[in-house]
């Protein structure tokens, strides 16, 4: 690809590894999640992933799952439409980094892919991550048509189990960055990252020229520093969502992660 990097890709090309912070839309409530977005942006996160509360989150561990439940329980069921609306309000604030929506596929299909693309573009969303939509799926092909036309990136996931053929498919289809799932299983904090991670990141790099960010299980500044030494970005989710109802604690923690990541493990 020879075109200029997208807004999302550019967030990884600032001369230091990027911190990607995951927050749950509508948790603890709409105002609380907006306050969390502001706190995380002020603390220096380079990209913010905004999760859409969903009833059957196949790829998420207990922390994110329970935040989704709480968000759905409040204010008449917070979903994709409400998350896009929240993203629109956040994206208009000064200093807000690129926002990436992380959603399961069904809410998108329910809304209609064209309408999702249109609303996301209006909201200024930079990209989408859809964990149950593999890149070679017909829905992925349809969604990408909508997204590409509107300058929205679609990030696909590479896993520890991915074969070279799968990595090629994932690398080929992704735009913005490639999301490397560090470990088997669902999202959540882990005390140890797998030893094979370095090798996995190297294999993903060989399959795509895009920036590579690692997520699933990264939960402490020390782990984030280790990962930032091998990847272009570090994604932290559950450890932030756990603090999401307390913006000042959240901001302070993200500040620590940012310093750890921006120095790239050095």
């Amino acid at each position: 690809m020879s075109s200029a990097p997208s807004r999302l890709e550019a967030a990884f090309l600032k001369g230091h590894p990027a911190l990607v912070a995951y927050l749950m839309g509508g948790y603890p409530d709409r105002a609380g999640s907006l306050a969390a977005l502001v706190a995380v942006a002020c603390a220096g996160a380079d990209v913010i992933e905004l999760g859409v509360p969903y009833a059957d989150p196949l790829a998420d561990g207990p922390v994110i799952q329970h935040a989704a439940e709480a968000a759905r329980a409040c204010e008449g069921s917070f979903g994709l439409a409400e998350t896009l609306d929240l993203a629109g309000e956040a994206a208009a604030l000064p200093g807000m980094p690129p926002l990436v929506v992380m959603t399961y596929l069904n809410p998108m299909m329910r809304m209609g892919l064209a309408k999702v693309g249109q609303k996301a573009a209006e909201a200024g969303v930079a990209g989408f991550i859809v964990p149950d939509m593999p890149p070679d799926n017909p829905m992925a092909v349809q969604w990408k048509r909508e997204a590409v036309a509107r300058g929205i990136d679609t990030v696909f996931l590479a896993a520890p189990t991915s074969t070279p053929e799968r990595l090629a498919v994932v690398g080929e289809a992704s735009t913005g960055f490639v999301y490397v799932v560090s470990s088997l299983g669902v999202t959540g904090e882990r005390t140890q990252l797998p030893a094979e991670l370095t090798d996995l990141v190297a294999r993903v790099r060989a399959s795509s020229p895009l920036p590579v960010a690692v997520g699933f299980g990264v939960s402490t500044p020390a782990q984030a520093a280790t990962v930032s030494a091998i990847a272009d970005g570090v994604i932290v989710g559950s450890a932030l969502v756990r603090r999401q109802d307390d913006p000042s604690a959240l901001g302070e923690f993200v500040g620590q992660l940012v310093s750890a990541v921006h120095t790239g493990g050095r």
């Binding site: 196949l58 790829a59 596929l105 964990p131 149950d132 939509m133 593999p134 799926n137 017909p138 829905m139 696909f156 996931l157 590479a158 896993a159 520890p160 189990t161 991915s162 074969t163 799968r166 994932v170 799932v181 088997l184 299983g185």
Partner: peptide
């Protein structure tokens, strides 16, 4: 070949299990 019965079916899972 992709597991579709008309429009239905398919493979909507995390990448981790695609090779399996």
């Amino acid at each position: 070949a992709q597991g579709f019965y008309g429009p239905y079916g398919g493979t909507f899972v995390p990448e981790t299990v695609m090779p399996a």
